[in-house]
């Protein structure tokens, strides 16, 4: 009976993941490996960026008059924020579908999301990356790693650590069923600062991590070290988010750009 319960939990979490996220690894890999009828538009310099802004991005975030006068770095930063905000809303819906999450104290739900959403976001972003670039605008665009790296300080430093993480993470060859459980494990984490009902969350975390372990054994029978490797990725993601949060604080202080209110809430008093 316990095994049946674990399989049901894995299935529920996988279904919630497929239902709530617009992009997933399977879709992203289809596009990145050229198996779609229309390939993504490649953004590799200022000219192609402008072309993309007139078509793909205009559809995505609308064209704001205030943004038109800003430099390319600030406009790209704005697009990154829009993607983050959309992903946070998707992650919130996903979290609510994880059995037990909605029964938690509401303050604890807020805390788990505050600390978990960026770790989950960067884990899922890896699905949209290869060594040369990143899928953007719902898979309709592909922005090159070199172009992102060439942006002026501090914006040029923003994505490179995510690419470095993604290349190692992608070598684990997880599929969407594995990622769904991994993302749930990131969110249901009992050691976030300020949690009220730690034992309740630890019980949830334990059952999700157990299911993840079991699922990896059956889905990747030839890779016995996958589970400990993934636990290490949880540590790496925390470090990645800490550095990202510091960079955001620097941008806020030194650049003439605004931070979305939802992201302000999340970054305020974070680390």
């Amino acid at each position: 009976p316990q095994l049946a319960d674990q399989k049901t939990l894995a299935k529920q979490i996988h279904e919630a993941y497929l239902k709530n996220f617009n992009m997933n690894k399977s879709k992203a890999r289809t596009i990145l490996t050229g198996k779609t009828s229309t390939p993504p538009f490649v953004i590799h310099d200022m000219e192609t960026l402008q072309l993309a802004e007139q078509t793909l991005v205009a559809k995505m975030v609308g064209s704001s008059a205030a943004l038109l006068n800003k430099d390319a770095e600030v406009r790209i930063f704005h697009c990154c924020q829009c993607t983050s905000v959309e992903t946070v809303t998707e992650l919130t819906e996903f979290a609510k579908s994880v059995p037990g999450f909605s029964n938690l104290d509401l303050n604890d739900q807020v805390t788990l999301l505050k600390y978990g959403v960026h770790e989950a976001f960067f884990a899922m972003l890896a699905s949209c990356m290869n060594k040369d670039g990143l899928l953007v605008a719902y898979g309709n665009g592909f922005i090159t790693r070199e172009f992102l790296k060439s942006l002026r300080r501090p914006f040029g430093e923003m994505m490179e650590p995510k690419f470095q993480f993604a290349m190692k993470f992608n070598s684990l060859e997880l599929d969407d069923s594995d990622l769904a459980l991994f993302v749930a494990a990131i969110i249901c984490c009992g050691d976030r600062p300020g949690l009220v009902n730690v034992p309740h969350i630890e019980r949830m975390q334990e059952s999700i991590v157990n299911v993840l372990h079991l699922h990896l054994k059956s889905n990747h029978p030839d890779n016995g070290f996958l589970f400990p490797k993934l636990l290490q990725k949880l540590v790496d993601l925390r470090q990645l988010v800490t550095e990202h949060a510091q960079l955001i604080q620097e941008i806020k202080k030194t650049e003439d750009t605004s931070l979305h209110p939802l992201l302000q809430e999340i970054y305020r008093d974070m680390y």
Partner: peptide, 21 residues
């Protein structure tokens, strides 16, 4: 905590209210 995270709180309580980009 809920007071300092009004948008997250709203998203948790009401899934049908979108966040402006």
């Amino acid at each position: 905590l809920k007071e300092k995270h009004k948008i997250l709180h709203r998203l948790l309580q009401n899934s049908s209210s979108p966040v402006d980009l």
